[in-house]
Write a protein that binds this DNA or RNA. Sequence first.
DNA 1: AATTTAGTTTACGTTAACGTAAACGTAGGC
DNA 2: GCCTACGTTTACGTTAACGTAAACTAAATT
Lengths: 126, 126
Amino acid sequence: MTDRSYSISELATEFGVTTRTIRFYEEKGLIHPRRVGQKRLYSPSDRVRIKLILRGKRIGMTLQESVEVIDLYDPAHNNRSQLHSLIRTVQEKRERLLRQKRDIEDMLAGLDEVQTLCEQGLKDAD
Amino acid sequence: MTDRSYSISELATEFGVTTRTIRFYEEKGLIHPRRVGQKRLYSPSDRVRIKLILRGKRIGMTLQESVEVIDLYDPAHNNRSQLHSLIRTVQEKRERLLRQKRDIEDMLAGLDEVQTLCEQGLKDAD
DNA sequence: AATTTAGTTTACGTTAACGTAAACGTAGGC
DNA sequence: GCCTACGTTTACGTTAACGTAAACTAAATT
């Protein structure tokens, strides 16, 4: 079963998006499924790509930013001349992610506080 | 100096946004600075509110979601009848944040991998 | 007095990321 | 032979979050 393929609606329901969304991603050049006749057929790697795009979205990346990160894995960049610029790019992405992580942790701490106050409030009312 | 106030451009440059952005937030009812004559004057708490809105934005929240979180701190909600629903809300926010945190950590791990490969590539070329 | 500097309102424009609808093709089941 | 499910293209619509420009005011500076 290594290398099955997926229909558009199969992926749509799996990821909780509409088929329109997936076609839109193709329209924007983010994915390139093959065709069988008229129909789109998605490979496992197409599927992962969509999954990663949606992961990016969840933390507020634009679609372009998402593929930018995904394509860092692309071996095409691995020519010596651009290795340094690639490293710099990685560093920039990392910094943004670290800041987001701090933001999230700060918010979580805030929520903890609120919850504690809530529970205290409930106890007081007993 | 406890309780100074801020002009719009002061806050704009501090937070790296335009004055338009700050006025827009007011237009949307997210902040309510006082007026001195025609001019807006921002209190320290107005300032914090903007800061928190922008923090929310950085992790992909909409403006509405940001204020929703911010207003969880508002003591107005602290009437016993709604404490349980408040706790549930807090729990939902927390779950989303935790997922985002996982997403970020996964991406960071990916970047680490890329970087290692890069450095390996540079070493090989020596 | 004239200009510069910061502020204001009003209003139309823009981009991303899809939603929604129309109009059509095709393969399988009754 | 027709319906149903799933797919397709084309195209206009929508929402959020501002950008941008015009036209004006008010204080401060030269």
